[in-house]
Simulated scan of single mutants.
Amino acid sequence: MRYVEGLLTPERGWIHPIERRIQQAPGIKNERILQMELLDDGTVTTMYELSGDREVIEFAAEYVPELITYQVSPMQDRIITYAHLESNEMLTGLLELPHTYQIVPDFPIEFASNGGIKLTIVGDEDQIREAMDAVPDGISVELQKLGDYAPENERLLSRLTDRQREVAEIAVDMGYYDTPRQVTYDDIAEEVEVAPGTVGEILRKVESRLLNALLG
């Protein structure tokens, strides 16, 4: 089973009018699509993760004629919005691809700053490539990464070198990341047989790579 990471960018800057309306709302940002499904009647249900003020989101929603129903649920520093939408040709074309080519989008799907979406597609490699070729007109496709599929935690760890992963696992096992911290660089260095300064350098690189992958 293979996966492709790619960036889909609509030339007009949005796929569905609800995204354009959110882009125009002051202080509101599209963060992620948590789930999205094309229903038998041609409408779409979706869950967006947004950041910003709930009242502004609700005000913006009132000016989206394609919006059938919605619910807004604040959750600490983010807002989850359920929406039932009238679809359009571009969105329907995208949502039909998984069924047509037997591929699976890996949610959540991240929004890019230019209105595009950063997504991972899982399935047979040839089917994935055919699906990308069939993306509706008006959307550019940039394939960024191809590989064997693994759950998210394994894909994160695949960003580390073997040595970085080894040192990080030993640091975790020894309690370096416990609160309070149980060991020092010196303790880890003795275990992995390198200088304490090298341990610090390796762990800083591990933390940087994983945090950039999660938050970048």
Rank of each mutant, 00 (worst) to 15 (best):
Y3C: 04
L8G: 09
L8T: 05
P10A: 07
P10R: 08
G13S: 07
I15P: 05
I18L: 11
R20V: 00
R21M: 02
I28P: 03
N30T: 11
E31S: 15
E37C: 03
L38W: 09
L38M: 07
L39N: 10
T43N: 11
M47V: 15
M47F: 14
E49D: 05
I57P: 03
A61E: 00
V64F: 08
Q76R: 14
I79M: 08
I80W: 10
T81D: 00
A83V: 10
H84C: 02
L85Y: 09
E86T: 12
G93S: 05
L95E: 05
L95P: 10
E96N: 11
E96S: 10
P98G: 01
H99P: 00
P105T: 11
F107L: 08
I109R: 07
I109F: 02
F111Y: 15
S113V: 09
G116H: 02
G116P: 03
L119R: 15
L119V: 08
V122S: 06
I128T: 07
A134S: 15
P136T: 10
D137R: 03
G138S: 07
Q144A: 06
A150K: 15
A150I: 02
E152F: 15
N153G: 06
R155F: 09
S158I: 05
R159K: 15
Q164R: 03
A168C: 02
A171C: 05
A171P: 02
A171E: 04
V172P: 00
D173L: 13
G175W: 00
Y177A: 05
T179M: 08
Y185K: 02
Y185D: 06
E191D: 02
E193S: 08
E193V: 01
T198P: 01
V199Y: 00
V199T: 00
R204Y: 07
R209E: 13
N212W: 11
N212K: 13
G216R: 13
G216E: 13
